[in-house]
Design a binder for these strands. Structure first.
Lengths: 110, 110
DNA sequence: GCAATACTTAGCCTCATGGCACAGTATTCG
DNA sequence: CGAATACTGTGCCATGAGGCTAAGTATTGC
C-alpha cells in the first residue's frame, strides 16, 4: 500500500507536465524514437531526455535502444493506477452519500 | 485549451502528494476544519496549510472561514478534468487500434 | 576510416516544493 | 478583560524540477 502510494506519486508527477502529456498522446499512435519525439518540442535534446526518463521511471512508458536509436512505447495499463484511485475515491464518496440518504429517509419516516 | 492544460497541470500536481490525497479522501466523508485535518498529519500547521492552499488553488477543494475556523469542502466535479483527460487519451488509442485492425484485416483479405 | 547521426553525460542556473520555527492576529470562552 | 484557540504570516533551509551549454560516446552510412 505504501508502494501503491509511491507509484501513484510518480504517475501523477509525470502527468503534471504538458510536455510529458504530449509525449503520451503521441505514443498513443504507436512507438516513436526519442529524436522524433523531440522534434515536436521547443527544447534541447538533453532537457527533453529528462522528461523521457521521468516517464520511464514512472512506468508510463518503456524504452529500448536498438543501435543508436532509443524507441519509446506507451504502457497503457499503467494508467490503470489512476483509474483505480479515482474509483476508490468515488466509492468512498458514494458510501457516504448512501449513509446520508439513508439518514434522510429515516428522518422522513422515523 | 491552453487553460485546460494549465488546469490539468495544477490538478495533477495537487494529486501527486500523499498528504494531499489523504485530505481529499478525508473530505470525501464531508467538510472538515483545517485543524481537524491537521491532527491526522505528522506535520506542523503552517506546513500543512500550504497543502490546503495548494488544493484550493488547484480547484479540488474550497474553503470558507467562519469565526476562527476554516472549513474545507471537496469539489468533486473537479476530478472530472482527470476523467476527461483519461477518456481523451483512450479515445486516441482506440482510433489507432481501429486503424491498425482495419489495416490487418485488409492484409488478411487484400 | 571518417563523418554524420543519435543520443548521453556532466555541470550549471533558477525557481518551486515541502519542511521547519517563531511571532502575530482574530475569535471565543470564562 | 484576559487567556486559550485556531489559524496566519514571515523567513529560513534543503532538495529536486526543468531548462541551458558543452563535450563525449556509440552506430551507421559513404
Amino acid at each position: 500500500m505504501a508502494q501503491y502510494s509511491a507509484d501513484l506519486d510518480g504517475v501523477f508527477v509525470a502527468l503534471a507536465d504538458p510536455t510529458r502529456r504530449g509525449v503520451l498522446r503521441r505514443l498513443g499512435r504507436g512507438p516513436v524514437s526519442v529524436g522524433d519525439l523531440a522534434r515536436d518540442v521547443p527544447m534541447t535534446l538533453p532537457s527533453f531526455l529528462k522528461h523521457v526518463r521521468m516517464l520511464e521511471t514512472s512506468g508510463l512508458i518503456s524504452t529500448v535502444k536498438a543501435g543508436r536509436v532509443r524507441t519509446c512505447v506507451l504502457n497503457r495499463e499503467r494508467l490503470g493506477l489512476v483509474d483505480d484511485w479515482l474509483a476508490a475515491e468515488r466509492r468512498a464518496w458514494e458510501d457516504r452519500t448512501d449513509r446520508l440518504e439513508q439518514l434522510l429517509s429515516e428522518e422522513d419516516h422515523p
